[in-house]
Design a binder for these strands. Sequence first.
DNA 1: ACCTGAACACCGTTCAAGT
DNA 2: ACCTGAACACCGTTCAAGT
Lengths: 185, 185
Amino acid sequence: MLAAGLAIADEKGLDAVTMGAVAARLGVTPMALYRHVANKADLMDGIVELLLTEFPPPPAGPWTDRLSGLADAIRASARRHPSVFPLLLQRPATTPRARQARHGVYAALEEAGIDTARLAQTERLISTAVLGFAVSEAAGRFRSHSRRQLDDDFARLLELLGRFIESESTRPGTDRPVPARPSSP
Amino acid sequence: MLAAGLAIADEKGLDAVTMGAVAARLGVTPMALYRHVANKADLMDGIVELLLTEFPPPPAGPWTDRLSGLADAIRASARRHPSVFPLLLQRPATTPRARQARHGVYAALEEAGIDTARLAQTERLISTAVLGFAVSEAAGRFRSHSRRQLDDDFARLLELLGRFIESESTRPGTDRPVPARPSSP
DNA sequence: ACCTGAACACCGTTCAAGT
DNA sequence: ACCTGAACACCGTTCAAGT
């Protein structure tokens, strides 16, 4: 049912996600939905939460790859679900799925040499920038820019964040601040 | 009429901005609104555009102060209009007001020594990060954080961006990357 | 336990009519 | 030029009733 709502949002936009439309896709009357959901707001909450499902579990590898991999996954999710993704900014990341993703970032930052006391704030800064970009792209602020341009912008943003992390690290880093990211095929 | 709609959004949220509610605030019937606006979407566009009015014209002073002043103004606007502000991410900044703000940033970046060819992309990076923070705060993603914490986060974000600009500058900068921002009283 | 039909208040929008 | 009354299709939600 949440999947049905997400599919409708992807295909026809947020406004098309109506109790009637979701019910119809399930072959049921609108009132049947109230068995599984308190009201429409509750439905929307569930659909937004469903997005987090797509963020992959923390992979292996060096921390730079882990972070850029997560960032890429977030952007990809935004592109896949442009009308729902912006709603992510409306709720604190307190659900189990959200915590999992956040703690994955903590681990990577710790490995990068970020002081434990600064982990949370640094994560907030990074995720705000990445989410800001992903939402901007999904919501249409960058409508007039080419895909190539956006890929380039995003790469530059990640490079900036990587350099920031290195500069905040208490451990001596390598010479080169951050490796170049591979361009997606 | 746009102001009436914005006021309703501020007071009771986006859902309360209804043709009937706006009309009632103006002492008129809902149908009268269709003289001034094509439909509700058009009304919402106008309300969002109205937000840009609050962004102050580029002030005088060193570029660091100009940029942080604009960033502060943007965040203040987001806090004042939490339900409408996030909609800014849905439209390209192509209106005259938006261009004005953007060109103010260009001028500051040029003064900071950013290469002309990189002006637009650098501006996009910076405004994405600042808007991402402002929208996150307005929309409620940071609901569980204190005002002090958010002020601190924002200061750190601006510091990061300032350092980034310095590092991208083709001119030799001063020793200290960016001046500390004064805390608001 | 799960679903439905009928009903209600509310919404955006239209159109012909009023001044 | 500007506004209105009446009407329409649609929406979220309730409640009593059905299996």
